[in-house]
Design a binder for these strands. Structure first.
Lengths: 192, 192
DNA sequence: CCATGACCCTAGCACCGCTAGACAATCGAG
DNA sequence: CTCGATTGTCTAGCGGTGCTAGGGTCATGG
């Protein structure tokens, strides 16, 4: 039996290698450069091996997205934990979110821009995605304001951050004024 | 000389046909379905003809985007013109923007999601793009608030709308609560 | 020792964006 | 009116894509 276990371990290890390599390649050269051939070559296996782990490229993107969701949630929680007062916490959350998007563009794309075959905002939504939203909610519920549904407030705040992140990264907004934009957003949306 | 003119007219007409067909196909089946082969077949010419009008697929996307920018600007101006008071104008703007994104998803993608090879937020930005931003600015400057740069306020408001539009369309936000989200956004961001 | 089964690779499909080069139609000069 | 030049379009093909069928190799269990 131990042989079988070893094989399963190796197989799991190889799956991690695929996801990590896909992510690395995407961050280095963009998702367009992540082709099944290149990916297979980097992990030193042939293409069909990829398909024994994932249904297709889409599922690989999804796997990277889930990894990213865990990290995003952690980054947001770490940032908010170290801030004093609701207002400052929200500002820290916004900065952490945008920093994550800026420094992990490929992962951010996998999460919110590309189709990774994941279900969002539903019952069967993967736990990491739910938890990332929860991380935002925990902090933002404090400043939703009276009579405003915290979940909906979080959605609106999140959408605003997402807009800033994507428009900035695709050159639609100049990165120079990023800081004052965040300030303004927090000042207006958050009710102290 | 009149022969030459006729040919130029026909050529311009064919270019319009290409753009219109690309747009139609994209709205029907998504941009992934807009391949040079399919597009060529629909206009009843061979592929290389496309390349005598555009450098490549990217430029065709860009042409659709410019068409969309003109329409978006018009839609926003029409909506704001028929509303009373700054606050109501902003709400009308937001609804018009999101309606446009919802009813012209492919065009919206060409504008703000895909790479159409256009310059944004720069001197050499095409006039239709500048004008679409101006259409937002005209209305939003009224409610930017004292001491807040109208351009920056417009960027933030636009980013929020963009976030709502894209997250909703890709299934990250449920469309049910779209209306109250817009209400909340307008109520918080706009200073009456 | 050998049959079995798991595993992985080679080779190939249909499609993609894009382009070289052949061919036909049109034009302008003599 | 004829004939070379130019313009316009097409066929065919290149190197790439995601994905898969089928064969061969190698360790495993009887």
């Amino acid at each position: 039996m131990s042989v079988k276990e070893r094989k399963e371990r190796e197989r799991a290890e190889r799956e991690r290698l695929i996801v990590a390599t896909a992510r690395e390649l995407a961050e280095q050269q963009g998702w367009d450069a992540v082709t099944t051939r290149r990916l297979a070559e980097r992990i030193e296996y042939s293409q069909p091996v990829l398909y024994s782990h994932f249904r297709g490229k889409r599922e690989i993107i999804g796997a990277v997205a889930l990894e990213g969701a865990v990290e995003l949630a952690a980054a947001v929680r770490a940032a908010t934990a170290g801030a004093d007062g609701p207002r400052e916490r929200v500002a820290a959350l916004a900065r952490a979110y945008l920093d994550f998007a800026e420094h992990n563009p490929a992962v951010y794309d996998a999460l919110f821009q590309l189709d990774g075959g994941l279900a969002y905002a539903q019952e069967d939504t993967p736990e990491p995605l739910k938890d990332a939203f929860a991380a935002l909610l925990e902090c933002l519920a404090e400043v939703a304001g009276d009579g405003v549904h915290p979940g909906m407030f979080t959605e609106v705040f999140w959408a605003a951050l997402h807009g800033l992140a994507t428009l900035t990264r695709t050159g639609r907004l100049l990165p120079e004024d990023a800081a004052p934009r965040v300030e303004l957003l927090v000042a207006r949306l958050a009710v102290v």
